[in-house]
Design a protein around this nucleic acid. Structure first.
Lengths: 139, 139
DNA sequence: TTTCTTGCAAAGGCTTTGCACAGTA
DNA sequence: TACTGTGCAAAGCCTTTGCAAGAAA
């Protein structure tokens, strides 16, 4: 079962309809690499309207199957989300993106909550660097 | 000496001119609370052109006296930056923003670097929650 | 005087909305 | 059939750019 299939089930379970454009976008997103801009999706799905792409991205975000990534320059990209909570590590040279999760980070959040009296509801953590391959190539 | 004075010295030291609009914007930013949108600055500085506000914000960002904050809805705000490296904790209810820094977070980054082989160059960490006062008010 | 800045207005990029038609359940 | 979803085009929002005039050093 492909990731697109899983997502279609999620849509159905939540009462959303399985339409042609939605299926097409799911397939396209699977081919676009680890992260993509809204416009990449528009370009890769010629039969689907721009508005539908944005509406679908938003819907998938709400469903948690797509996550938003803020790039180093502040622009927005999207990514098919793994199930677990995670963060993004992005190579500023080649653009590779990988996920990571960190128990230590959870500890940081707990500590922040303790010190400030806040209840933490959400956070955003993006890390930018240079991957091993790019370091080797650049050296 | 006010914070605006300090910033003016920074500008001068770096070879930037101390102009009327820049002084005006510095004063205005000091009155806008802990964070503000570009448009808030435009509105609060009637004599200064929109373009100048954006140019000045960018300049101040490059100088490190203003930092950019990504709000929970993805929009951008600005904030007068303290000297040290820090992160933002934002109350989603009343909008209060406070800074925090964390040695533990540095440890998290080091661990990520070790596990992935990346050299970390930058990161973005924003935390959203509910402050103690809003919890009390809501309960 | 020379060079950096500014304001205005217009262009730009990206995202959302309105509306009539089409497709799903 | 009833209602959700779609495409198209236009509007919106925020930010940047071009350029001639103005101010700082």
């Amino acid at each position: 079962m492909t990731s697109a299939d899983v997502i279609e089930q999620t849509l159905a379970r939540r009462g959303y309809r399985l339409t042609g454009p939605r299926r097409a976008l799911l397939v396209v997103m699977g081919t676009l690499g680890d992260h993509f801009a809204a416009d990449d999706v528009v370009g890769a799905a010629p039969g689907v309207g721009r508005a539908t792409v944005f509406r679908t991205l938003k819907l998938l975000q709400d469903l948690g199957v797509v996550c938003q990534v803020v790039l180093e320059d502040g622009s927005t990209a999207y990514r098919l989300a793994p199930d677990e909570h995670h963060h993004h590590l992005l190579c500023v040279e080649c653009g590779e993106m990988r996920d990571f999760s960190s128990d230590d980070l959870e500890a940081v959040l707990a500590e922040v909550a303790r010190r400030t009296g806040y209840t933490i509801e959400a956070h955003r953590f993006e890390v930018y660097g240079r991957c091993a391959a790019c370091q080797a190539a650049g050296a």
